[in-house]
Design a binder for these strands. Structure first.
Length: 115
DNA sequence: TTGCTGACCGACG
DNA sequence: CCGTCGGCCAGCA
């Protein structure tokens, strides 16, 4: 029978939930979240969920989610020119040339931390 | 219903 | 070193 989208127990909601679990001053990657959800291959869906996050009533710290290289690939989806960068720097995360400095130091893996 | 897209990742030359 | 390609899967026309 057809599932009711009213009860969104799907992939997207879980992505948003993990984003909220990201501690202050920490960042994670799309692939890390995808892997945590059990769909390591669908890292793209995580990014897509971020894009849809603007439709959520609650704010999702999508700025704390970057790609594997630590690059702010989704910054163009934020208002302004470098809103995403300023949000990261606001948490004490240095960003230079759209790339997080010492990304490994700020990287937070839900699979490793939440396990 | 099918087909295309996409804020990625990893492999290959 | 860097450019390119395929794969993965959920949402939308």
């Amino acid at each position: 029978m057809s599932s009711r989208k009213s009860h969104d127990d799907g992939f997207f909601s879980r992505v948003y939930e993990v984003c909220r679990l990201i501690p202050y001053g920490r960042v994670t990657s799309y692939g890390a979240i995808a892997r945590y959800l059990g769909t390591a291959g669908s890292s793209r869906m995580v990014g897509w969920a971020m894009n849809n996050s603007h439709s959520l009533p609650d704010f999702v710290p999508a700025h704390k989610v970057v790609n594997r290289k630590g690059m702010l690939t989704g910054k163009h989806h934020f208002p302004g020119n470098n809103m995403m960068q300023e949000l990261l720097e606001s948490e004490g995360i240095p960003v230079v040339d759209d790339v997080i400095v010492d990304f490994e130091k700020y990287f937070w893996d839900p699979v490793r931390e939440l396990e």
